[in-house]
Simulated assay, not measured.
Amino acid sequence: MRELPVTGRPPAERADAALNRRRILRAAAELIDTRGVEAVSMDEVARAAGVGVGTVYRRFGDRARLVYAVIDDREREFQAAFIQGPPPLGPGAPPLVRLRAFLHALADRTEAQADLLLMAESGPPDARFRDGSYGLYHRHLAMLIGRTAPAADAPYLADALLAPLAANLFLHQRRVRAMPLERIKAGLDALLAGLGAP
């Protein structure tokens, strides 16, 4: 199987552009850490970074993309772990075991950055699906589902398994329904159980 590419690597850029990018991301991360995710606006980030607001818009396009860029480092680590890391999350474990490891790791990742993910997903209605990470997750799950249950509708089931990990639903379950993270993981296991049945 051809190795999947890790998405989100910044393209090669001029030194001044790279410096501005680092300033903007550092300013956005500091605003989020000190005042909460709602404090992130393009104007505030520009002021904190010492750049023009036009620079922020040209570089990131919109608020959702800026937030995705802030969480990019953690995202790249996660992708490297399931693409080329050790089993069971990485290659080498049976497909169903890898599916479970992936969903549990993604639940942990969502738990750690749910507010940021919610902001990133609050752009256009399809913001979550336009993100390169979602496409990579979907292809990865569809591949593992196909190996586990060849007759299954792998693309549909990949979407179905990713749906409970949308930030808005995840936060509703954690904060409104007071579901512990382990209960969410148990629910994901229940969804997977059908794939392991003969």
Rank of each mutant, 00 (worst) to 15 (best):
R2D: 15
L4E: 14
L4G: 06
P5I: 09
P5Q: 08
V6W: 05
V6P: 06
P10E: 06
P10D: 09
A12T: 09
A15V: 14
A18S: 09
N20H: 13
R23C: 08
R26M: 03
A29Q: 09
E30I: 10
L31I: 07
T34G: 12
T34M: 10
T34E: 15
R35N: 12
G36K: 13
V37Y: 03
E38Q: 13
E38D: 15
A39I: 01
A39F: 11
D43Y: 07
R47H: 09
R47T: 12
A48I: 08
A48L: 08
G50H: 00
V51F: 06
V51L: 03
V51G: 05
G52E: 13
G52F: 10
T55R: 04
R58E: 05
R58D: 08
A64V: 01
R65E: 09
R74M: 05
F82Y: 15
I83G: 04
Q84H: 12
Q84R: 15
G85P: 13
G85N: 00
P86G: 09
P88F: 15
G90C: 01
P91E: 01
P95L: 04
L96P: 10
L96G: 03
L96E: 11
L103R: 00
A105Y: 00
A105L: 03
A105G: 03
L106H: 13
T110N: 07
T110W: 07
E111S: 09
A114Q: 14
D115V: 06
L116C: 12
E121C: 08
P124T: 15
P125C: 08
F129S: 09
D131K: 02
L136Y: 02
Y137W: 07
H140R: 05
H140W: 06
I145Y: 05
R147P: 05
T148G: 04
A149W: 03
A151F: 04
D153C: 00
A154L: 04
P155T: 06
Y156K: 05
Y156P: 00
L162F: 08
A163C: 10
A167K: 06
A167T: 01
N168C: 01
R174T: 11
V176W: 02
R177C: 06
A178G: 00
M179Y: 06
M179I: 03
P180E: 08
P180K: 01
E182Q: 04
R183T: 15
I184S: 09
I184P: 08
L188V: 06
D189S: 03
A190S: 11
A190F: 10
G194R: 09
A197H: 04
